[in-house]
Amino acid sequence: GATAVSEWTEYKTADGKTYYYNNRTDESTWEKPQELK
Rank of each mutant, 00 (worst) to 15 (best):
D15I: 01
T3R: 10
V5D: 12
W8I: 02
A4Q: 13
Y11D: 03
A2K: 10
E10S: 03
W30N: 08
E7H: 08
W30Y: 10
E27R: 03
V5K: 12
E27H: 03
S6L: 09
R24Q: 11
Y11P: 00
R24E: 11
T25W: 03
P33E: 02
E31G: 04
T3A: 13
A2T: 14
N23G: 07
Y20T: 00
D15N: 06
A14M: 09
W8D: 01
T13W: 02
Y20F: 06
W30V: 07
K12R: 13
A2D: 12
Y20Q: 00
P33D: 02
T29I: 10
S28Q: 10
K32W: 04
W8T: 01
R24T: 14
V5P: 14
E7N: 07
W8M: 00
S6R: 07
Y19P: 01
T13H: 03
G16S: 01
D15W: 05
N22I: 01
T3K: 09
G1H: 13
E27F: 03
K17Q: 11
L36Q: 06
N22L: 00
D15Q: 06
K37W: 15
Y21H: 11
T3L: 10
K12E: 07
S6V: 10
Q34D: 15
V5S: 12
K32F: 05
Y21Q: 04
T3N: 14
P33R: 00
K37I: 15
T13Y: 03
G16F: 00
Q34P: 15
Y21R: 07
A2F: 11
G1Q: 13
Q34Y: 10
Q34W: 10
N22Y: 02
S6F: 08
K37S: 13
Y11W: 06
W30S: 10
E27T: 08
W30I: 07
N22M: 01
A4N: 10
T18V: 10
T29Q: 13
E7G: 08
K17T: 07
S28R: 15
Y21M: 04
T29K: 07
S6H: 09
T13Q: 05
K37G: 13
E10K: 04
L36F: 11
E35Y: 06
T25L: 06
K32M: 11
Y21W: 04
E10T: 04
R24M: 14
W8P: 01
K17I: 07
T9E: 10
Y19D: 03
K12V: 14
T29A: 08
